[in-house]
Amino acid sequence: MHVSQEREFITLIEEHKGIIYKVIRLYVNHDEDERDLMQEILFQAWKSFPRFDGRSKFSTWLYRVALNTVLTFKRRPNLVIPHDNLASLNVSNTEKRSVDDTEALYQAIRGLGDLERMLITLHLDGYENDEIASIIGLTKNHVAVKLHRVKETLMNQLNA
């Protein structure tokens, strides 16, 4: 990589590092895993950067690298309760109400399967279904159907 390209890479990463933090926060539970993944995402982005042709936005490209890395990287298992079991938790209505909405959404998203989490994250971040399809490798139709189901599951859990 040329020096100018290196500088460009560092500037772009600095501008968009929030994307990497976001992906790590949604998928990782342990400090050591967080650092490992941060380094791995930076490494993969660094390795792939010379092929970044600017056809997509850098943020989309970095999102793709970050999500693909996190999905395929060996992580310690999550301590989050799977979403299927959330509904059956014996929590009183008063307690439920006291839980902050954002924390509830965070826990509900983290309780989803890896790919479902990836779909809803991209959707909530404003990506169109065809962009999500191209990032993940599913068809637009599959993305739409799956997203509808994931949203339904999330809403059911959050409104329960």
Partner: peptide, 13 residues
């Protein structure tokens, strides 16, 4: 929550 930085020394390994 999500945009909080990852703590610790990060380098491009």
């Amino acid at each position: 929550k999500l945009n909080k930085p990852v703590l610790g020394i990060i380098s491009v390994s």
